[in-house]
Structures are given as C-alpha cells and as structure tokens.
C-alpha cells in the first residue's frame, strides 16, 4: 500500500540555516507516529511543512499521492492557492498554544470552518460540533469563550475544532507543552481515544515519553533535521541502538524520572 505521507529528499532552509537536509520519511495510512528529539531539531518544521505553513526549497513531498508542488507552480510554495487548499482539506493541526479564536464561543470555534470552508449547513455543523465537544468532554462549555476555559479545556476544544474538518492526517505539535502538569492528563486522554481510530493518521511531537510509548505504532528520534533512529516503541525505548538516542533518552527519562520519584518520596 502507498504511504499517505512521503518526504523524498526534502530540504528546508531558513536563510543560511538548513533545518532539513535531504529528509526522507514515510507514514502509512492510519499509522500513529511520534516524533521526539531535542529542541531545534526540526520536528515542528516537519509538521508545519505538512500543514503548508512553511514552504520547502528542494525535494518532493506527497500526501496520499498528491504532490505539494505543482509542475509549474509559482511562489515560495511552488503551487497555486487552490492546490494548497486541496491539500489542506486532508490535514489538520493541533498547536502547542491552542490558537483558538478568542472572539468566538467554543461552539463557533468548532463550527466556523465546516460552515465557511466545507459549506456545511449550520444546523448540521452544530450538531456535529456538539457531538465532537461531547467526545472531548466539553459539551457543557459550548457557549463559553476560550478565555473562560483552562488550558487543558482549550486544547481539547482545539482538537475538536481540527476534527470537525474531517482530516485524514492529524498533526499534533507538542499539544501538552503549554499546559500545567495537572492538565496534561485530560488532553492526553482525548488523544489516546483518537489513537483508536483506524483511519486517522496521526503525527505527534511530544516530550511525554510514556505516552508516546503507549499510543504510537512507531517512534522516530530526530536530531539535526534527520531521523537518527526509529522503530517500534517497545524496542525503541527498551533497547535504543544509537548512542545519540541513548543520550537523549537518558537526559529526558534518566534525569527527570528520579527527580519526580524522589519528590514523591519526600512528600
């Protein structure tokens, strides 16, 4: 079967800085992939390129067989706005800082795009939105504004908002990094439920290693714009092959866990 996402020798530069250098990466339909790696390694960049928030300079990227570049496309994206629009129809994104629209109620945040972009009827969109809000456990908050919600609640609304567009690929860029520790669980719970959807392809950037191990089919370790090591989460976490991976994992797990552990003991 064809992969749904295929990066082929993709090169991405910010001025003189090369973030992705001949990057190759494939994701199968329905696969749940976690990207981990140190700060600045290019994880967000991969997601942002997929979401057409960033253009890339060289190489080839396909989504479900459709190339991001058009043969005679112009501009930084080498594609027409219409073409990008078509690509974005299959991709959704959940941002680290939620990015809900502050001037719209929770319900309108979820309804707006299906009505305006998918031309769905408002009643239909609303009943679907309420369904999605129920799924993320927030149907009672539908008439509130984002500023009245906690971070965790906002992020759950953002997930519902992305799902309302029926994406086939859903991107999560550190969805819990901006949250207070006690709110992380509720968001991970929603993502965990989503991971059971067989059709949905998920690409997740996170620092929650235990969660990554639990939900993903594959974990990719990213460093300096390359995938250094990837594989089945069990094997990846229990027996990393590359020294760089071991170093990273120990810096994240080895240092943090004992601290938490000792804190718990002290309390």
């Amino acid at each position: 079967m064809n992969p749904i996402i295929r990066f082929e020798n993709v090169t991405k530069r910010f001025g003189a800085l090369t973030v992705l250098d001949n990057f190759n990466f494939e994701v199968q339909r329905g696969e749940k992939v976690t990207l981990i790696g140190p700060s600045g390694s290019g994880k967000s960049t991969v997601l942002r390129i997929l979401m057409t928030l960033e253009p890339f300079q060289d190489g080839h990227l396909e989504l479900d067989g459709t190339s991001y570049h058009e043969p005679n496309g112009r501009g930084p994206f080498k594609a027409s706005e219409k073409h990008l629009h078509k690509i974005r129809c299959s991709v959704g994104m959940v941002f680290q800082s939620f990015n809900l629209f502050p001037h719209m109620t929770v319900l309108r945040n979820v309804v707006e795009a299906p009505v305006a972009v998918l031309k769905m009827k408002r009643d239909e969109a609303e009943s679907r939105a309420i369904e999605l809000l129920r799924m993320v456990g927030l149907s009672d908050k539908k008439d509130q504004f984002p500023s009245q919600l906690s971070g965790g609640q906002q992020q759950r609304v953002a997930i519902a908002r992305a799902l309302a567009m029926r994406p086939r690929v859903l991107l999560f860029d550190e969805p819990t990094s901006a949250l207070d520790p006690q709110l992380v669980g509720e968001v991970l719970g929603v993502i965990r439920d989503l991971a059971h959807e067989h059709d949905l392809t998920m690409l997740l950037v996170t620092h929650e290693m235990r969660f990554a191990r639990e939900v993903s089919d594959r974990v990719c370790f990213f460093d300096k714009g390359r995938i250094v090591e990837q594989g089945d989460p069990e094997r990846f976490f229990s027996n990393p092959q590359q020294p760089r991976t071991r170093e990273f994992l120990s810096s994240i797990l080895g240092d943090q866990e004992p601290v938490r552990e000792s804190l718990r003991c002290a309390l």
Partner: peptide, 25 residues
Amino acid sequence: PSQLEAARALNFSKTYTLWHISMPQ
C-alpha cells in the same frame, strides 16, 4: 501570527480570514 496559522490550518480563504479572524481582533 499564530491566529493566522490556525486559520490557514482550517483552510479559511484569505478574505475570510481577514474579515472573520483578523478584523474582529
């Protein structure tokens, strides 16, 4: 800019983003 990125991720057109996302704020 994060608001504009969210609008783009939801596939709003530029005109729609201007009038319904940027302008009210």
